[in-house]
């Protein structure tokens, strides 16, 4: 494995880990709100959250590139403030990954929160637990299965990103050249040995992650009986 490839492995892991942490932090309140609100407009929000599932990654990537680039709303603003635009940067990739993996974090959490029902929260309220305590000591632990799913799916999905990254990040070693891009490069250069090693590694890792996820879920399932 070349030094470039090793850098790509670490970069990918860093991106996936950061994306997962950010999405758990942002996705939890969003999922909680979606699971509890009776506001009829929530379907619009749910549709927006689900968009990355159906949109071609290049479409999302294109809009982000326009938005984050030097002439874009966000990028232009940053340049004006004396900063740097976000196209072809790690931060830009992170923003893209967060948006791209949003449904993978929000949907398992929303399902987990919705399946709690009213009863445990009402019970907690009658036991003098205020709203924050109800959330942290009842809803969160009861929804732990949703958190495991959300974290694993977000991490695995971010590892497999390609189109969005190519559009927003390009292919800068150590900055935006993640594993999927490296594999594409190797294949294009007919370096099948390298492509195969990285592909095989990614396949094995993703498979192991998903098997672990389903094993953990089964244990939760049993504990519930």
């Amino acid at each position: 494995m070349t030094a470039d490839d090793i850098t790509a492995v670490f970069l990918t892991a860093r991106l996936a880990a950061a994306t997962t942490l950010i999405l758990l932090a942002l996705g939890t309140p969003l999922a909680w709100w979606l699971a509890r609100t009776r506001w009829s407009g929530k379907v619009m929000v749910e549709a927006v959250v689900a968009l990355p599932l159906v949109l071609p990654p290049t479409v999302l990537g294109y809009y982000l590139l326009v938005l984050l680039g030097p002439g874009g709303f966000v990028g232009g603003f940053l340049e004006k403030m004396g900063g740097h635009h976000l196209a072809f940067t790690f931060e830009g990739l992170l923003i893209a990954s967060v948006l791209y993996s949003l449904p993978f974090a929000v949907q398992p959490l929303q399902d987990a929160f919705a399946s709690l029902g009213e009863l445990p929260l009402e019970v907690a309220a009658t036991l003098r637990a205020g709203p924050w305590r109800r959330f942290f000591t009842v809803a969160l632990p009861m929804a732990r299965r949703g958190f495991v799913s959300a974290a694993a799916m977000t991490f695995a999905h971010t590892l497999g990103e390609f189109g969005v990254i190519l559009m927003v990040g390009g292919n800068i070693p150590g900055v935006t050249r993640v594993l999927s891009i490296a594999i594409y490069d190797h294949a294009e250069a007919l370096d099948h040995a390298s492509a195969q090693m990285l592909s095989g590694g990614l396949l094995l890792f993703s498979f192991t992650l998903l098997v672990s996820l389903y094993l953990v879920n089964r244990r939760f399932e049993r504990a519930r009986l």
Partner: peptide
């Protein structure tokens, strides 16, 4: 609000917290 009323409520469904054991439910 309910949590400031000091009102005890026993529901038809016991509604025990599944992530806590019996002692944990009482300690809550």
């Amino acid at each position: 609000p309910t949590h400031r009323r000091a009102v005890g409520f026993v529901f038809q469904d016991p509604g025990l917290f599944p992530h806590l054991d019996v002692a944990g439910n009482l300690a809550f």
